[in-house]
Design a protein around this nucleic acid. Structure first.
Lengths: 195, 195
DNA sequence: AATTTCACTCAACGAGTGTAGAGCACGGAT
DNA sequence: ATCCGTGCTCTACACTCGTTGAGTGAAATT
């Protein structure tokens, strides 16, 4: 409980602010926007609910901060090798690693029920679809890119958010290997271009 | 507004009961459990909120009725032809047709944020995974089946619940065609069975 | 026609929520 | 030692929600 009092006031403030944000991220990711209360966030951060408001203005703004997505990967322009694309997809959506950051999970968890999260998810996913489109060749590139993204989203949901038993128990590397042929089926240009 | 008064009392009651359930299904499917209020359901059904309670007991029970899933398709036992499986998947999850019934959408919409919906979704999906597993040959059948289901779930979410523009605008048949190779990539037994 | 039954409404309670403003206590400067 | 700034808490308001029990009017039964 008692921290070392050798911290400057500004530093202590910065830390509580971050402690609140961390608690918010975790709770939003686990329970979604509606079921996460300011009071619960405050309690998890060991702080009065009013302080959360004072620092972040509103529950909505807190969520916006907690769920803000940053995609730092510089998207490669122009077509690339399929295997490269596949690995990028798998890592980007956390199937390969043991999980996505709470930030992304918070958005995903709420995107079906909270309008603002839905908008955020749409923007992020559309952006990823566009990047992927540029890397695909053949007809219907944009639709195929969308299907690629949606596939990994679906797997992530089943794996991380629903914890479906067959996916939860399987090692991530195995899942990635099994998923590869499917993704390749979307990356490879379809047979009948335009009848 | 004014119905023909030539209906028996029992019949009128049965109809309002169903009118309430229909309204509930639609609102649950569109906004999810938390954002759908009993008052809104009642208003949509042209009825007093108290009546909803009287008929269905609680909001939770109303949701259970509205989201109850019935999978009438008799699952085929034993391995089948890939194309048969693919078509079954596509129709079952509504990618092929123009949409799923509100009943299914209600469950899907809320499964990430409402515990009971999550449980319902887990049961339904696990059931489908098991059925699919029996139809697959080769190693990791269960994991591959799970990935198959999750893929279609992801596409359905992107298409029906998020309305991602590339999927919304594309004709369902086209999407089904583009998706086929990907599904086939999961149905076909992987190359390295067991090292 | 009188009485009973029942689909339905009215009004309200209690709990929980996001949020606001006043106040307290302690670190830092004088 | 004193005073100020500020990180933080206390208390409370306004609102919405699910839920309840009494009441009403018309249909069904006698």
């Amino acid at each position: 409980m008692s921290e070392s009092p050798r911290l400057s006031r500004a530093e202590r403030r910065r830390r509580t602010e971050e402690r609140i944000l961390d608690a918010a991220r975790e709770l939003f990711a686990e329970h979604g926007f509606e079921r996460t209360t300011i009071r619960a966030v405050a309690a998890a951060a060991g702080v009065d609910p009013a302080l959360v408001m004072q620092y972040y203005g509103s529950k909505q703004k807190l969520f916006a901060q907690a769920a803000a997505v940053r995609l730092p990967q510089p998207p490669a322009e122009g077509p690339r090798h399929p295997d490269e694309l596949i690995d990028a997809l798998l890592t980007a959506l956390g199937v390969k690693l043991d999980g996505l950051p709470a930030t992304s999970l918070a958005t995903m968890r709420s995107m079906l029920t909270h309008p603002e999260a839905a908008e955020l998810a749409r923007e992020t996913l559309t952006r990823q679809i566009d990047d992927m489109t540029g890397a695909l060749s053949g007809p219907d590139a944009r639709a195929r890119a969308a299907l690629l993204i949606c596939t990994t989203v679906g797997v992530t949901i089943g794996h991380q958010l629903l914890s479906l038993e067959p996916l939860r128990d399987a090692p991530p590397e195995r899942l990635a290997d099994l998923l590869r042929p499917a993704l390749r089926g979307l990356i490879t240009p379809p047979e009948s271009p335009a009848p």
